[in-house]
Amino acid sequence: MNVTDAAYDTVHQHAGGSEALAPRMGMSAAVLRGKVNPHNDRNLLSLQEADALMGKTGDFRILHALCAEHGFIAQRTEAPASGNLIGALLAAAAAKGDLAELIAEAMADGRISPNESDAIARACALVMAALVQVSQHAEAAAERGGV
């Protein structure tokens, strides 16, 4: 997933969408939608606004997209606030299964369309994030001296 798509998805998949998020960002919903519109080449989301957007939504796909575009993976350094290792492992397995299903469906006609490629990239990002959660839960369990 590229950064532009990540910003668009962050806004449009947030509960209440741009209408709920824009006032918290100090702008109108129309301006926010314009800033994350992939077909707009003016009045783009600034770095400070992207940072604020991630902070207000708790959705870090913009950060992950930036990292992926430059060959990196971002990993949170603090232990997860809730959940456990087995739950995280099951969530990662489910995300991996969703990715496999998506790839199988995309390949059914013998070609991968740009939309299918974007969907696969998004699903890969979800798998990576889920696997990072497994690692974080393992590290937290080790620090606690148990599971």
Rank of each mutant, 00 (worst) to 15 (best):
M1P: 00
M1L: 03
V3G: 02
T4N: 07
D5N: 04
A7W: 00
A7T: 00
V11G: 00
V11S: 09
H14M: 04
A15H: 12
G17M: 02
S18G: 14
L21P: 08
P23L: 05
R24V: 01
A30H: 12
V31F: 00
R33K: 05
R33D: 11
K35H: 08
V36E: 02
N40T: 10
R42S: 13
R42F: 05
L45D: 05
S46P: 08
Q48K: 15
E49L: 02
A50W: 03
D51A: 15
A52Y: 08
A52T: 07
L53D: 07
M54C: 12
K56E: 09
D59V: 13
F60Y: 11
L63R: 15
L66K: 05
C67P: 06
Q75Y: 03
R76P: 01
I86V: 13
A95K: 06
M107Y: 04
M107T: 15
R111C: 13
I112P: 12
S117L: 15
D118T: 05
I120R: 01
A121T: 15
R122Q: 10
V127M: 04
M128R: 12
V134Q: 05
A138C: 11
E139I: 07
E139S: 09
A141G: 14
A141I: 09
A142I: 07
R144Y: 03
